[in-house]
Design a binder for these strands. Structure first.
Lengths: 360, 360
DNA sequence: GTAAAAATTTAAAACGTTTTCATTCGCTCA
DNA sequence: TGAGCGAATGAAAACGTTTTAAATTTTTAC
């Protein structure tokens, strides 16, 4: 047996690891400590003496140490990533971008990163969620536009994978969500039109399968019934209908003698389509008819003669989504992770309204 | 020497690893092979016999094996991730979303994921790029809205980190890019207005620091000079100006006796602002003035009396960006990774134009 | 002054891959 | 027959962490 090739203590002077980046071992060698101790010192473990902790921190800072995420992830099983199912539809201007911007804001000072899940394209949203769980691509998942019995929610509840969604569902098991109070949006929007003496109001609803369609419908119907006025709910178009199709529909409808003289538009594009369609048949906004629109960007601001708007702050929603998902990952009770964001009404409202009547 | 403790073939029946997920070892045990061989078989290494290869593949499929990305990443140093610096501005409708959608499309069948870099928010874009390089957060980087001497490009060229950008620069070192032919856009747009007998044309330029501002200006000036007509370049507003401010500007300008009767709008929001502003002072589109707008969503389609548009397909650009970045990561020569996307002109053009005169 | 207890530190074994280097096995060729 | 060869497989060492269990030092208690 020849001399063992293992270097004795201090013998290995080549501190720099293969790839050039400093590792725990680099710090350990410099400080004359064990890797274990360094690891503990950096993660504020209890047993490390204050002096050692500070010295390790200082060295780490000086040599620009950054933990290797892959190694951490391999060891701990945590990815430090949250994923979002990116929506392909873009009828609400800047929808996904605003949400993502907000999420990124919430993740800013954490160790988490945001990955965009390759959901769309010949894959359903459920399959995308499945993909994320199976590959353990993230520690948590965010998605939007929920349905009452959303298949994604069902899957995630079954597997116990942490998630939060933008929009409510009707599952009996509670789960985290952030939603916008679309009931109040629709209720106040409708009352505004009624206050402006409009006598037949119409609402452009979101696709029926989406939960928030029910909320808007509910708010709309409540106001309409309270006032006892005529109303109209177009069946052949919805909020996701391309602008030109929607406009053509409005055009044809405007020609009829019983055409509505008030419109609730829960999206800026639909508002533009209505204005354009009505304009084509000689109707003037604020004279012959009125609109209350949901505003999510600065698109409508000041643009038209005067459109009443109710604002929905999607970036704020994104920030809440990110923050609350992190809480969920840290085992906060889902019952404490419900948030209903209030509409920001950009016109004077009349009599006080009953508060949040739609929370089941 | 005592009996070695290594289990004999088939002796270790505890196939399932701690975390429940099948690993290479699971397959190896089932197949009675070494982990090495399994790894090779799955990665199509040359020395493995066809029979073994097929058997391993079959078993892997049956037990639902998925490689652990963290382990691969730790071992190989490759992250299998590409990052995008998300732009916070959203004056071009759906800009970021469309690009990301395209990138995701390009990444679809690869092992790559897309992460959104936490760039914005009290951090400059350069710092965001630095962060990504230092943390080795991704194998490649995508960003948009380049400047002629873009600080991000400079940094990335220096460090040799793979990247591709949307927009050109003026660096002498070649680097991959995808760009839209904004020269032709502006040139043809201007010629269209001239053909419509407009006698004074104005262009809403992007912020001056951006490269594509120069291209638009160049195309505009070329057409204007060829025709020898009057023109106007507003100095106080640009494409990133909020819609309401832009509209107020147009309003005030429209009142003057020397107001333009033709507008180039390289973005849909600016087109709406112009229409609104001109409308406020009693000017009618297609009668008193004309617009040629760049169209990136379906927002303007059919909406207005008749706006001439030139289309820019941002999703296609995103797809090219993703595809070409992967090529760059695989060491394709940067000189071969240049792409200039042609405008899609939605109106009849007159005489043939010289082709791509703007490529230096 | 010593034994027990507490406070620190450390060695070594994982996590699941890839990769280097060795080994086995059946052949061919002298 | 056995050296030499190529094809196929395998053992073991990494990659950079975290964690379990053990060892060391220091403090406290008597």
């Amino acid at each position: 047996m020849t001399e063992p090739s293992r270097p004795r203590r201090g013998e290995n002077l080549d501190i720099t690891p293969k790839r050039g980046k400093p590792t725990l071992r680099t710090i350990a060698t410099i400080a004359g400590l064990a890797v274990t101790t360094v690891s503990r010192a950096l993660s504020d473990a209890p047993q490390i003496s204050l002096e050692t902790r500070q010295r390790v921190r200082r060295i780490a800072g000086e040599i620009g140490y950054l933990p290797d995420r892959a190694a951490q992830r391999l060891k701990t099983g945590r990815t430090n990533v949250i994923a979002i199912l990116l929506d392909s539809h873009e009828e609400v201007v800047g929808f996904s971008t605003s949400i993502m911007y907000g999420i990124a804001k919430a993740l800013k000072e954490t160790s988490y990163h945001l990955v965009v899940a390759p959901n769309f394209l010949s894959t359903t949203d459920v399959e995308a969620a499945e993909y994320i769980i199976r590959n353990h691509l993230a520690d948590g998942l965010i998605f939007t536009r929920t349905e009452p019995l959303d298949a994604r929610v069902r899957l995630l509840l079954e597997t116990g994978f942490p998630f939060i969604c933008h929009g409510r569902t009707e599952f009996s098991t509670p789960h985290p969500y952030v939603d916008y109070d679309n009931f109040t949006f629709a209720y106040e929007a409708t009352r505004r039109l009624i206050a402006k003496k409009r006598r037949k109001v119409a609402v452009i609803l979101p696709p029926k399968r989406l939960t928030f369609c029910q909320h808007i419908l509910h708010g709309f119907m409540t106001a309409v019934r309270e006032a006892g006025i005529a109303y109209e709910i177009p069946e052949t178009v919805d909020l996701d209908t391309p602008a030109d199709v929607l406009r053509d529909f409005i055009c044809s409808r405007a020609a009829a003698p019983d055409a509505p003289d008030g419109f609730i538009c829960p999206g800026e594009v639909s508002a533009l389509a209505v204005i354009s369609g009505m304009g084509d048949t000689g109707r003037t906004l604020a004279v012959d008819y009125d609109i209350v629109a949901k505003e999510t960007s600065r698109l409508l601001t000041q643009l038209q003669p005067k459109v009443d708007t109710i604002h929905e702050d999607l970036t704020a929603a994104g920030e809440d989504l990110g923050r609350m998902l992190l809480q969920r990952i840290n085992n906060v009770n889902p019952d404490d992770l419900h948030l209903l964001l209030p509409p920001q009404i950009n016109f004077p409202i009349g009599s006080p309204i009953p508060k949040t009547r739609d929370l089941s």
